[in-house]
Computed example of a mutant assay.
Amino acid sequence: MTDEGYPTANVQGKEIPYDPETLRRIKEHPCFSEKACHAFGRAHLAVAPKCNIQCNYCVRDFDCVNESRPGVTSEVLSPGDGVARVREVMEKFPYVKVIGIAGPGEPLANPETLETMRLVHEEFPHLILCLSTNGLMLPEYIDELVKYDVYNLTVTLNAIDPEIGAKIYSHVTYKGKKYEGVEGAKILLEQQLKGIQMAVERKMIVKINTVYIPGVNDEHIPEIAKKVGAMGVYNFNIIPLIPQYKFEGVTPPTPAMKRAMHDRCAPYVKQMKHCQRCRADAVGKLGQDMQSCLSHGCGEKKEE
């Protein structure tokens, strides 16, 4: 634990204190610090429509303004449009400290993601860059992320047992070939764990998202927390299932069930309890999405 109250990084069994820049990336990121979510905001750039896996709970909508959940966006942006969006966001909402890419598909399955990160990093080097990924291609692209100072990373990891993963993923497309069942889940898991370890070794601040699916992975979630905690990830976010697609008949966990799961996982890794399940084009503070105000003249007055 540092003097500021933040834990040290556990890298291959060694406790390494966070440097000042890493602490800043924690303190100013609303998803990595509960205090930050009241003061600072984030902007998601929806530049990544394609996905390389199919989760049984995922429906991606590319022209949706009526829902607030992962996988939806009002429009898909080009890298150039993404940088223009950042300019507008910084003019209207200067409390935004984080620029992230979280879809609406898998960021690392879209070359536009890295191009956008490059452009944003060049023009706004002071902003925190963040990526959310399923982890399948993370080992391949992790050093490019480091090159553009993308040090805040979220990996969605729903199972560390391929038998359970096979119930969650319809298929995984890897190196041009589609894999189903346990075979696909095993490939995905191997890549996820490899990528997470590589990220920790590169001093990235890693958050794990796990979708809580009653009757599928619920009793398995504490094992996921134990595994990633031992790997040195920073925090662990339990996301209640949104019943849709193949899991539309599954009753989601109640708030009490979620709290109980946090309690079971807390001994292994720091828990994130303030997630708002953001859209792929979310802008502003958590729970106060302002993306619909962009280019419509209803932004907040710029702070002095």
Rank of each mutant, 00 (worst) to 15 (best):
E28P: 13
S33K: 04
L77T: 00
Y148F: 06
D149I: 06
A260S: 15
K226W: 10
T133A: 04
K186S: 14
F32L: 14
K178H: 14
F32V: 05
G297C: 00
E144G: 10
K167R: 14
Y169E: 12
N66V: 08
C293Y: 11
D263P: 06
T251R: 15
G229A: 08
A282K: 02
K35I: 13
K178G: 05
N237L: 02
Y169N: 08
H171K: 13
T73R: 04
V155K: 10
I196A: 03
V59C: 02
R25P: 04
H121S: 10
F40S: 04
Y245E: 08
N235F: 06
D19W: 07
K226Y: 07
L157D: 06
E219P: 11
M90N: 14
I53A: 02
P20S: 08
C64N: 04
K175H: 15
I16F: 06
T251K: 14
I164Q: 07
D161F: 14
S295Q: 14
A102G: 01
I142L: 02
I101P: 01
E15H: 14
Y234W: 09
M198K: 05
G215Q: 05
T113P: 06
H44S: 01
E183N: 11
R42A: 10
R118G: 01
E248V: 15
G195H: 03
Y174E: 01
Q271E: 12
D149P: 02
N237H: 11
L294V: 01
L129S: 12
Q197G: 14
K92G: 15
M272C: 14
T154H: 03
T133E: 12
C278E: 09
V98D: 09
G82V: 00
E144Y: 10
L129N: 09
K175G: 02
Y151W: 13
G100R: 10
M290A: 06
K194W: 00
E67D: 08
A199G: 05
I16L: 00
E75L: 03
H121E: 03
E75S: 13
H121R: 11
R42E: 11
F93C: 06
E183Q: 05
P107Q: 06
M204S: 11
K92Q: 15
V47S: 01
S74G: 09
K178E: 12
H262D: 05
G181L: 09
V59M: 00
G41Y: 01
Y57T: 11
G284L: 11
I128H: 07
L114K: 02
P240C: 08
A266K: 13
G80A: 09
C37E: 15
V200S: 10
K226L: 03
I239K: 05
N217K: 09
L157S: 10
V269G: 00
S295Y: 15
A36E: 07
M257P: 04
N217F: 11
I196Y: 08
D143H: 08
F247N: 11
K273C: 15
V211C: 09
